[in-house]
Amino acid sequence: MIDVELLHAYVDGELTADERAQVEAAVRTQPSLALQIDAIRRQKELLGRLPEVECADSWAACRARFTEIDKTKRIEGFVGRYAWAMCAFVLCTIFVGAMLRRANPNAVRTGQVAAAVSGLSFPFPSADSKRALANSQVPEERNVATLGQIAIVGMAELESDGKLMRCVKLRDAVGTFDFVIVYGAAKIEAENTAEDGYLRGQANSQNCIAWWREGAAFFLMAPNRTHEELIAIAGMIH
């Protein structure tokens, strides 16, 4: 009795010479085996005659995906090759942008003033001083004669970034506050100046307003004062 798997392998041409001879010898003695082999062969041929499946659309979709893959690989390759160059370009762009923003050397940065004031030691501390502002060393161009309620506590001058700064510590009935004048300032570098001409913000953790007039920048800062209160004081100083 011959193994039926041998018959299938015989039809498929998958037997060794010895196995083939064994099958052919068996077929000669058992004619039914020839029928079986013939049936296997016909069935195999039947499957081999199956028509091709229509797939043109699917192949077109495949080609489109190949194109997408190529495009992605090109981009990835470009990015991979030039990543450092692109990073350098971006950094250079940021640097150049920053330089352009600082193109006006006479502009004043608010941080510059805050930093200067925070480290300031007033040379004339006189907490008890009740001198009227009219008698103080405040520049003459300031109309201070009307500020009878505000007294000068101290004053200092310093130079920052090539500009002369005059820092005045003042006191009124509520408390002390700092008034800084930066001479020769072309403008104040800031983007949030309100329509009233005052820049509102924070400096050294205290409310601060700033404004520019006639070539000088003015900063007024005080703890526990609202921006509106500072603006009212600024109006008095004006």
Partner: peptide
């Protein structure tokens, strides 16, 4: 796996089969 001789299909059968039936 072994088909009996009596179960073997007529030769004509495989010629008459169409693709859909085989599938």
């Amino acid at each position: 796996p072994m088909a009996e001789a009596a179960e073997l299909p007529d030769r004509q059968v495989f010629d008459e089969m169409v693709g859909a039936e085989v599938e």
